[in-house]
Computed example of a mutant assay.
Amino acid sequence: MTPKTLPSLAALQSFEAAARLGSFTKAAVERKLTHSAISRNIQSVEHWCGETLFDRKGPKVLLSASGQRLRQRLSEPLQALHAALELEEVAAAKQPLKVLMLSSIACTWLVPLLPAFARACPQVQLSVETGYEIVSLPPLQPAVAIRFGHFARAGLRCQRLWFDRLVAVASPDWVVQHGSHAAQWPAHQLLRHSHEPWPARLTVEGLGTAPVRLTVADGFEFNDALLLAQAALMGCGVAWVRESLVQGFVSEGRLQVLARSEQVSDKAVWLVCREDTADLGAVRAFFAWATRLS
Rank of each mutant, 00 (worst) to 15 (best):
Q79Y: 07
I42G: 08
A152S: 04
A93Q: 15
S251Q: 14
R71L: 13
L166T: 01
L190H: 07
V128M: 05
L207T: 11
S104E: 14
V257N: 13
P172H: 07
E196Q: 11
G58L: 08
A80R: 12
V272W: 03
D218R: 09
A282P: 04
H35W: 14
A232R: 02
F286Q: 08
T52R: 13
S23P: 04
G149Q: 07
A232D: 04
T291V: 12
P142N: 02
C121H: 03
V212W: 01
T215I: 03
G155T: 01
P115K: 01
S171M: 14
L63F: 03
T34R: 15
Q159R: 11
F220S: 13
L226Q: 10
V238Q: 10
A168E: 03
K98Q: 10
A65Q: 11
F163L: 08
E129L: 04
I134C: 02
Q159C: 08
R147C: 06
A145T: 01
Q184E: 11
E129R: 06
T5N: 15
L233I: 09
P142I: 00
E76I: 05
V204N: 14
C121M: 05
I38M: 10
P115N: 06
R119T: 09
E86M: 09
R165V: 00
G67E: 07
F222S: 07
L280W: 02
R157G: 04
T5Y: 12
L114S: 02
V29S: 11
R284F: 08
D218N: 11
V272G: 06
A282G: 05
F15C: 10
L207E: 14
W240T: 05
K57T: 13
F54S: 04
G50W: 10
L255S: 10
S251K: 13
S244A: 09
P112V: 03
V128D: 02
R292W: 12
H188R: 15
S36W: 12
I134N: 08
A106L: 02
R73D: 15
L161R: 04
S136Q: 05
P59Y: 05
T203P: 00
V111D: 08
F54C: 11
E30D: 15
L245W: 10
V283K: 09
A154M: 08
H195M: 05
P172D: 15
R147G: 06
Q184G: 08
L233F: 04
G179C: 06
A93M: 14
R213W: 00
R40C: 13
C158I: 07
L78H: 09
K26Q: 14
K60P: 01
T130K: 00
A17Q: 15
A10C: 09
I42H: 06
E275I: 02
A217C: 02
A17R: 11
D173I: 07
C158G: 02
A91R: 15
A84L: 07
S294K: 10
L137A: 02
A80Y: 04
A10R: 15
W198F: 04
S23H: 05
D276F: 03
V111S: 09
